[in-house]
């Protein structure tokens, strides 16, 4: 199940674990990324906690944790090559895997159609 947030994150849900990244729209708006800072595995966040930082030449931006949970895996490929986030934001450019504190919370997020409407 694919879900989105109004802050331009996407989540791919498999059981109680969500793979999280930023949307193509967000990547296009940020421009070429030159630095990504990911959370530590084991870190826990509340919904909308500042989980990661991305930086372009021009500015730094926060990436929020879309739901409460614990980081169980991070994509170190994007810290060594931030351009992956620009070239494949919804694939190889994923950020982290989040074990959700409450899977039922995901139903409140946007579906793909609602997100597309938001950015239209």
């Amino acid at each position: 199940m694919l879900k989105f947030t109004a802050e331009h994150e996407w989540l791919k849900l498999e059981g109680d674990v969500a793979t999280v990244g930023i949307t193509q729209h967000a990547a296009d708006q940020l421009g070429d990324l030159v630095f990504v800072e990911l959370p530590d595995v084991g870190a826990t966040f509340e919904k909308n906690g500042e989980a990661a930082t991305v930086e372009s030449v021009k500015a730094a931006s926060d990436v929020y944790c879309p739901l409460a949970g614990e980081i169980v895996e991070i994509n170190e490929a994007i810290t060594s090559d931030p351009s992956l986030v620009n070239s494949d934001p919804q694939g190889k450019g994923w950020f982290f895997k989040l074990k959700l504190a409450n899977v039922a919370d995901a139903k409140d997020l946007l579906d793909e159609a609602a997100y597309k409407e938001l950015i239209a």
């Binding site: 421009g31 070429d32 030159v34 372009s56 030449v57 021009k58």
Partner: peptide
């Protein structure tokens, strides 16, 4: 601030 190519 930038054109289509981007700052980098």
């Amino acid at each position: 601030v930038q054109y289509q190519a981007g700052v980098l």
